[in-house]
Amino acid sequence: MIVAALAVALLLASIGAKSRKLSAGQKFPKGPPAWPIPGHLPALLTGKPTHQTLADLACGKHGYGFIMGLHLGCRPTIVLSGKEAAKEVLLTHDKIFANRPHFRLADDLFFGFNNAVILSSYTPRLVWLRKVYTQELFTAKRLQQL
């Protein structure tokens, strides 16, 4: 019985490790050690508010730095804790980080993934749709008409 449980745990750990590998040339920021399936979710459930837990991970006794990589379940996540790091990502490299994950539910609800401005990836179509929305739909005159 113990051998079977150990085999299942080893299998799950190897599956979790394989799912976290990045393609060649990509480097994921370092972070605390993660569990195979839930990732870093147990580390965030400490009873303290999430922002304090993340601040402790970034600047606490282990000090993973202002840019830290976490796995929330099977989703790799990058956490920025400093003003300079946030400015670098949000101003300099904003188009790289503007893409959103593809959800199949969005295909079903919005008749195609790229038809929802909130959920679509950064493409020329998204830029055009946002321009149309801000110049045509969300003007003061249109809002008064509605």
Rank of each mutant, 00 (worst) to 15 (best):
A4T: 08
L6R: 04
A7N: 06
A7P: 01
A7F: 12
L11R: 03
L11Y: 08
L11P: 00
A13Y: 03
G16L: 09
G16A: 02
R20T: 04
K21M: 11
A24Q: 12
K27S: 07
K27P: 05
K27W: 10
F28P: 09
P36L: 12
I37Q: 10
G39S: 05
A43V: 12
L44A: 03
L44S: 07
T46C: 11
T46M: 07
G47E: 15
K48R: 12
K48E: 09
K48F: 08
T50H: 02
T53H: 03
A55T: 13
L57A: 00
A58Y: 05
A58Q: 15
C59V: 06
G60M: 09
K61D: 09
K61S: 06
K61R: 15
K61L: 03
Y64E: 08
G65V: 04
L70Y: 09
C74D: 13
P76K: 06
P76M: 10
P76F: 05
T77K: 02
S81Q: 15
E84R: 11
A86C: 14
K87G: 12
L90D: 04
T92E: 14
D94S: 15
A98L: 02
N99W: 07
H102S: 03
F103Q: 05
R104L: 08
L105C: 01
L105N: 01
F111K: 00
G112T: 04
A116V: 01
A116N: 15
I118F: 10
I118Q: 10
L119I: 00
L119H: 06
P124M: 03
L126T: 02
L126M: 04
L129D: 14
L129M: 08
V132S: 06
Y133D: 14
F138K: 09
F138C: 07
R142N: 12
R142M: 14
L143S: 02
L143M: 15
Q144H: 10
L146S: 10
L146V: 11
